[in-house]
């Protein structure tokens, strides 16, 4: 069963909090005493979706782990903006080792905890690993797959902003087709990132048949928290892939971050679902379906599609991809059709 939004009480579970809901039904983020695991003073860009997603996810994990959590972090924006000497924004035990080894570092932490726990030197401490899409789907993929395959007791969270943002917005294997990056410029016969390349790691994670895989966005906080909480309640390898818009890399207004995440979901471009032991067990349905243009047009990385002569064909291909997601993951409610 996927997250069931409450469609009642003014805003139901769509807003962060809701004074009309029982405190137990409110989000972690609504709590006046939330951890703020990623504290103020970090150097993320204005409106950074990754900073937001990280606080959402780690606060939820902290809540689930009753404060007993250790995080390993890959190189990337999140690491750089959170821990430039002499200040760190993290309030939890946190380690950054390298760009491509985060899953393995987390495995090591989990192994140490297991031994220490057995020896009675440590209580039940949980481990999360986190990184950007580049650190996850590309350079860190080997370690990630190894961690999955061994079913190590680690929750890995990927903050997908569709590119190597920290190094100046280059293409990663999570960059969507047609998007402009510094290494997929909108020039030549196929402007922007090529179609038919790239990979969708949640599906690959599922192929490992690990106990839990989920996707989420910063636009659906309650769903995100539900998934992190659920993942924290499971032992073994777990993977959550969170779409986090990047105003800088996407060429979007800083206030549009959540809107864009929402549109990614509502268009079907980014399917939001969860899977247990390799099988999809729930999807977050599209609430108000939108054509892909609604999403694309707000981002300069797609500006070349909307020039004097709109790239109708390319847009149609992107729409087809979204429609395929909708079919594949059953993103539309029968009634909503």
């Amino acid at each position: 069963m996927s997250f069931q939004p409450v469609h009642f009480y003014q805003t139901g579970t769509f807003t962060v909090g809701n004074r009309l809901l029982e405190p137990s039904e409110r989000s972690v983020q609504a709590n006046i005493q939330r951890t703020n695991s990623l504290n103020s003073g970090h150097r993320a860009c204005q409106g950074c979706g990754e900073a937001l997603g990280a606080r959402y996810a780690i606060d939820a994990a902290m809540n689930a782990a009753r404060g007993r959590l250790i995080a390993a972090n890959a190189t990337g924006c999140l690491e750089v903006f959170s821990t430039p000497y002499p200040e760190t924004s993290w309030q939890i035990p946190w380690i950054h080792s390298l760009f491509g080894n985060t899953a393995a570092v987390a495995t090591g932490i989990a192994a140490a905890i297991k031994v220490k726990k057995h020896k009675g030197e440590m209580g039940d401490v949980r481990v999360v690993a986190q990184g950007g899409d580049g650190g996850t789907t590309d350079i860190g993929f080997g370690c990630l797959s190894g961690m999955f395959e061994r079913n190590d007791d680690v929750l890995y969270i990927c903050y997908d902003n569709g590119g190597y943002m920290n190094t100046g917005v280059q293409r990663s294997s999570a960059t969507p087709p047609a998007a402009r990056t510094a290494t997929t410029m909108p020039v030549g016969p196929e402007p922007g990132n090529q179609f038919g390349q790239g990979k969708f790691v949640p599906a690959i994670a599922m192929a490992h048949e690990i106990p839990y895989v989920a996707t989420a966005t910063v636009a659906d906080l309650r769903d995100l928290e539900y998934k992190v909480t659920k993942a924290m309640g499971i032992r073994g390898a777990r993977y959550i892939h969170i779409l986090v818009p990047c105003p800088l890399g996407w060429g979007a207004a800083s206030e549009d971050t959540i809107l864009l995440a929402r549109l990614a979901k509502e268009t079907g471009i980014f399917p939001v679902f969860e899977a247990e032991n390799g099988e999809v067990t729930g999807t977050l349905k599209i609430r108000r379906k939108q054509p892909v243009e609604a999403y694309l047009q707000r981002q300069k990385r797609y500006a070349h599609l909307f020039g004097k002569k709109p790239a109708v064909e390319t847009i149609a291909r992107l729409q087809a991809a979204a429609d395929k997601n909708i079919r594949k993951y059953g993103l539309l409610d029968q009634e909503a059709n």
Binding site: F8, Y9, Q10, T11, T15, V16, G17, N18, R19, L20, R26, S27, Q29, A30, N36, L38, N39, S40, H42, A44, G47, C48, G49, A51, L52, R55, L221, T257, I258
Partner: peptide, 26 residues
């Protein structure tokens, strides 16, 4: 139910959204 359909136009109804969505905990 009917009262709760109100959108509270223009007046904070403490939905915690601003508190939640700020990436800077500001």
């Amino acid at each position: 139910f009917e009262a709760r359909r109100c959108l509270s136009c223009g007046n904070c109804f403490e939905c915690d959204n601003c508190y939640g969505v700020c990436p800077d905990n500001a």
